[in-house]
Design a protein around this nucleic acid. Structure first.
Length: 351
DNA sequence: AATGCGGGGGA
DNA sequence: TCCCCAGCATT
């Protein structure tokens, strides 16, 4: 099968089978960019609602460049990898100030912008600008590793280079946009990561070396995942006058989001009472014990509500309702909200 | 070359 | 549980 046939099979399949996704209705570089950033390491099903809300609130580059970081992070709340949002604002400011409000149609310049790496720069070049740049993501690694029956780990730089090279040679000059999206769409809906991809309905199964050898279920070869480090955490939700203490995090993890007071050991009710006695503790209540899993960590969390007379220094105090509406908290803290709500309702009924 | 950086869908 | 996801930045 020749290259032209491969391209037409893939592109025709894509045009007939592509999913109806919100970012496929708009073709502006801005909209494509927003979707590509959101889709980094994040599944389509998760992104859809975030994307729709984002575009509605920040429909233009100008709006994004001017938005308050807290507002932006609220739009991003729960999506994860929050540096993506911070970098998007940085890039928007640069685009407004240096590039007259529009993305330059140039790979190297795109690559230089915060949060845009080789994949996203190539994706924008091909999807937004319709230029033949090979955008290689997790889907494409899998599709090509199977097409070429690559039995070495796709983690190896040489293999990554090889796959990029294959796609660069294969990409359609006439329709780079649909070719790029088609290859990824195929990986997402047909050439699945499971042991049983849908080879029966694959438009390019005739050229697939892995399919010929019936080894598609074993590819691509990946490195075993690293074991997550476990960390003990105690989360104290300080409550004074029915308002709750939160603070903007300045740590690497969950940076710029708001959070409750968190420390690196497991505390008991007794130790909390003695350690924070100077705040004039009125009550200490266990909210919940739970775990929260990050990419490389697992937090084992003990969360308590600590009712005090004096406020905790350097924290801002807001009502639970205000926090939920206006402040962006990571999921690890939001998991406490049901218990928090329950407790606050109960104590107000008691009055 | 390896690690940090979130969270959830789906088997 | 585990794997994977339209990756990037830093070291």
């Amino acid at each position: 099968m020749n290259k032209q046939l491969f391209q037409s099979k893939l592109i025709n399949w894509y045009q007939e089978n592509k999913r109806d996704l919100p970012w496929r209705k708009e073709h502006s570089p801005y909209a494509i960019w927003v979707s590509e950033i959101m889709l980094q390491q994040t599944q389509v099903a998760t992104v859809i609602d975030y994307y729709t809300r984002f575009i509605k609130e920040l429909p233009t580059m100008q709006a994004l460049a001017e938005v308050k970081l807290d507002h932006l992070l609220k739009l991003w709340e729960g999506l994860g990898y929050y540096i993506r949002a911070r970098n998007m604002k940085k890039t928007a400011v640069i685009i407004i100030s240096k590039y007259n409000g529009s993305f330059p149609n140039d790979y190297e310049t795109l690559l230089g912008l915060p949060g845009i790496g080789p994949y996203t720069a190539s994706a924008m070049m091909s999807i937004a600008f319709n230029k033949p740049y090979a955008a290689v993501d997790g889907n494409v690694y899998r599709v090509i590793a199977r097409q070429e029956a690559i039995t070495k780990s796709i983690k190896e730089p040489a293999v990554k280079k090889q796959i990029k090279h294959v796609v660069s040679n294969l990409i359609s000059e006439e329709n780079p946009s649909d070719f790029t999206e088609g290859l990824m769409e195929l990986g997402a809906t047909v050439c699945l990561p499971s042991k049983t991809p849908r080879c029966d309905i694959c438009p390019i199964n005739e050229t697939c070396s892995a399919y010929k050898k019936n080894i598609q279920g074993t590819l691509p070869i990946k490195q075993p995942a690293l074991k997550k480090k476990r960390q003990k955490k105690t989360v104290l939700v300080f409550l004074t006058n029915n308002t709750i203490a939160i603070k903007k995090r300045e740590t690497a993890l969950l940076n710029s989001l708001y959070g409750f007071y968190t420390l690196d050991t497991h505390l008991t009710k007794t130790t909390i009472t003695s350690q924070f006695n100077h705040l004039e503790i009125l009550d200490v209540k266990k909210l919940k014990y739970y775990t929260h899993v990050f990419t490389h960590l697992k937090w084992q969390i003990r969360a308590y509500l600590v009712k005090t007379t004096k406020p905790f220094p350097n924290y801002i105090y807001k009502s639970l309702n205000t926090i939920e509406t206006n402040y962006s908290l990571p999921t690890t803290y939001k998991k406490i909200f049901p218990e928090l709500n329950q407790y606050l309702e109960r104590s107000s009924h008691g009055k």
